[in-house]
């Protein structure tokens, strides 16, 4: 029966079926390890569940409790701070480095590799090293260096005000390598003729930067903004490693959403509440991505 069905098909249909057979593999893969768990998270977010017992439907109670939890608002604000401060700083540094690195030939490869290595290093190992850098005297390098130039010791990770930035620093540093490489690729893709034309017209360096390089790098920049915003909104390893007891302290000053999800899920076994938080994070990421894509599209339309 199958044989006769197959033989009655046109070549076009046969090709389509063959193609779909191959495509089915990644589709099934995605459905089982991506979409199904995502669906499950939405489902569990309306349940009370402790991982072992039966799930109990409780409506929007998880969301209501999250709304009324003052820690959630601190944590949400922390998460946003990581992104809105971390992204511009890291893009500014990586663009500056890429811009100058692109101009030099001598040692170009070595310097680029040096910037790229942190990106390849395990976040946890790196965060541990930074954690030691931030220690008070006589161990912490940063405080030792400050004392050389006569600046009083800083508490860094032990301060409610400084801790978030202290955790952000290694995260920015680790992301630089990737961003620099993408920026350099973008810079190299600008046709030489543009620069030659500008020179003939007598444009200065700043003008070339403003009128040619930055507009030409817009797609690259937008790509990096989206990628690194998502990265910072999902920050976890650095905080988990660098805060005392992995608690996101002191006094929740460094705790991001993902750590809160992790604590609810695997310390308190409140899977429902944790799922509700993942849904919130999902919506936040979705909103940011759509917003940025929309902004990008608008600008192109104007040009």
């Amino acid at each position: 029966m199958f044989r006769s069905f197959w033989e009655n098909l046109t070549i076009k249909q046969k090709l389509a079926i063959t193609a779909w057979l191959f495509l089915a593999i990644p589709i099934i893969f995605y459905i089982t390890i991506r979409f199904y768990p995502t669906y499950e998270a939405f489902y569990v977010s309306f349940m009370k569940w402790n991982l072992l017992g039966a799930k109990k439907y409780i409506g929007f109670k998880n969301y209501i409790r999250i709304w009324g939890d003052e820690d959630f608002w601190i944590v949400l604000w922390n998460t946003i701070k990581y992104a809105i401060i971390g992204v511009p700083i890291s893009l500014l540094i990586s663009f500056t480095v890429a811009y100058y690195l692109n101009e030099i030939r001598f040692g170009h490869q070595t310097i680029r590799a040096l910037y790229f290595i942190p990106f390849l290093t395990t976040a946890v190992a790196m965060a541990w090293v930074w954690r030691w850098f931030y220690q008070p005297m006589p161990i912490g390098y940063f405080n030792i260096m400050l004392s050389w130039i006569g600046i009083p010791q800083q508490p860094f990770l032990r301060s409610v005000e400084q801790a978030l930035y202290s955790v952000m620093a290694p995260a920015v540093w680790a992301g630089l390598g990737f961003q620099i490489v993408i920026f350099i690729a973008g810079l190299r893709a600008i046709p030489k003729s543009h620069f030659e034309a500008a020179e003939i017209d007598g444009a200065g360096r700043l003008q070339i930067l403003r009128e040619i390089i930055l507009p030409a790098l817009k797609p690259t920049t937008i790509f990096l903004i989206i990628i690194s915003t998502i990265g910072f909104l999902r920050i976890f390893d650095q905080v988990y490693t660098m805060s005392e007891d992995s608690a996101g302290g002191p006094l929740n000053a460094t705790k991001p959403l993902v750590l809160m999800i992790y604590d609810f899920a695997f310390d308190e076994f409140k899977l429902g509440r944790a799922s509700a938080l993942t849904v919130i994070l999902f919506l936040l990421l979705l909103f940011v991505s759509i917003l940025q894509l929309w902004l990008a599209r608008n600008r192109y339309a104007k040009k």
């Binding site: 032990r158 301060s159 409610v160 005392e244 007891d245 608690a247 302290g249 002191p250 006094l251």
Partner: peptide
């Protein structure tokens, strides 16, 4: 435990 850690930090840091 976090209760005591937080109470301690509030007094010492804030």
């Amino acid at each position: 435990r976090q209760s005591i850690v937080d109470a301690y930090d509030m007094v010492v840091l804030q």
